[in-house]
Design a protein around this nucleic acid. Structure first.
Lengths: 228, 228
DNA sequence: TGTACATCAGTGAACGCGCGTTCACTGATGTAC
DNA sequence: TGTACATCAGTGAACGCGCGTTCACTGATGTAC
């Protein structure tokens, strides 16, 4: 309810209400995600929760898939924000802490938003094809990890085979580290995601009662190995 | 069509037909899984594919969830069979090869049956609660990995905190290796599953063009570190 | 400043579809005497 | 060996439900002159 604002409201009243409602729809969708999982997310249920006609959703998202895309991008940006913040909070040359902070930030994201985690790191949604716009948000986490790795200037042997197999990644690093060192980074990324996924998806049941302790131990050991 | 079998057919004709049809339903369900993903698996579609009334499925599986359970158990047993076979094919004291064989067997399973892989190692199916019967098949892979680890008698420090955090696993090993060594095994399991999941779920796109080369390299390095 | 028109948000009914599950039923196959 | 009965597989209709999406519409908000 903007009354007597002297300055013209930023891009108009309607645009602001629209942005708010768009956010609200995404919030309702997120809530549904948490209750039911990704595949059973329904436009009608969202509309119901918001007290509007189901057809009204189409003023904000042209289809169910577009809504999915928005949720996926938000999830990637959430974990991306956390990871970059954790990284930035460390002394730039303290690679060990930077690595550890990033790893813990990813796990914390998973614990805080398990369904968002499953949405982006679990099985792909059947029938849904991620558009190009998801790529940039998606790579923020690996980019952050690889940047730490490159900064740490790790040693490692050469390997023409590996070099070719990871051509895309090698280009990204500007060939400033060797393929074996880079592979170690990818392995670390794999170990982080693997441990978190095993935990989140129930594979530690009856075996590991305190995953946090194991994770922290593992990440300490991993950081020693990869960026020290 | 069993004609004039002298011996009485094993547990009767009907029982055999029944077993065959049960298998056929699971096969049709698997085919659907491959085409549509886990959540959109429908009893009616299976019945349609098999040319029978949708209600007939209920003679074989009392509900959709029971069918899911059967598929999940089959998937765990498939990867379990592969992993145990790969392990058994190695000289028992060649821990390096045993580890490598097991890791490659898991990845090969994922490549051969991506949707089965997603079914058991991806996001949980919303609304589905895995019953007790899935546990035994589910632990075959980690049990195999941990057995190799224990056989290799790895060194490693003590840690009361880790010991407690992994109490269940420690009990399984009969406390024959230290918690730090055991943690290294869990880390290895995490790295295997993480690298495969990143690959299968599309996170290597544009970065790693030949995941097989990276995986084999990583597993060689990992085996050196864990069981050598 | 006031008027005429264009844009937009939201409605409610409808289309066409698929789903899991139940139920009373018909025949065929097995079992007991 | 033959008969009477019980068991089982499979049918087809029905219940009650939810879904994504389209469409013509009503009012309210913005814009141009």
């Amino acid at each position: 309810m903007p009354e007597s604002t002297v300055t013209k409201p930023a891009q108009g009243y309607r645009a602001r209400v629209r942005a708010e409602l768009t956010a609200e729809i995404k919030a309702a969708a997120t809530r549904q995600l948490e209750a039911e999982g990704a595949t059973s997310l329904s436009l009608r249920a969202i509309a119901r929760e918001m007290g509007m006609a189901s057809s009204a959703i189409y003023r904000y998202f042209p289809s169910r898939d577009e809504l999915f895309t928005a949720l996926i991008i938000d999830a990637y940006n959430d974990v991306g924000d956390r990871v970059e913040a954790a990284d930035a909070a460390c002394a730039p040359t303290n690679y060990h802490d930077r690595f550890l902070g990033v790893a813990k930030a990813i796990r914390q994201f998973a614990l805080d938003s398990p369904h968002q985690y499953a949405l982006i790191y679990g099985s792909p949604i059947p029938g849904y094809k991620a558009p190009q716009d998801t790529i940039d948000p998606a790579v923020r986490v690996p980019v952050c990890l690889m940047t730490i790795l490159v900064d740490a200037k790790p040693k490692g042997g050469k390997s023409k085979k590996l070099d070719q197999a990871m051509a895309g990644l090698m280009d990204f690093t500007g060939h400033s580290i060797t393929p074996v060192a880079l592979a170690r980074g990818v392995q670390a990324w794999g170990e982080i995601m693997g441990l978190i996924s095993l935990e989140m998806f129930g594979h530690f049941e009856n075996a590991i009662s305190d995953p946090a302790v194991l994770f922290d131990h593992a990440m300490g050991e991993l950081a020693d190995r990869v960026v020290q």
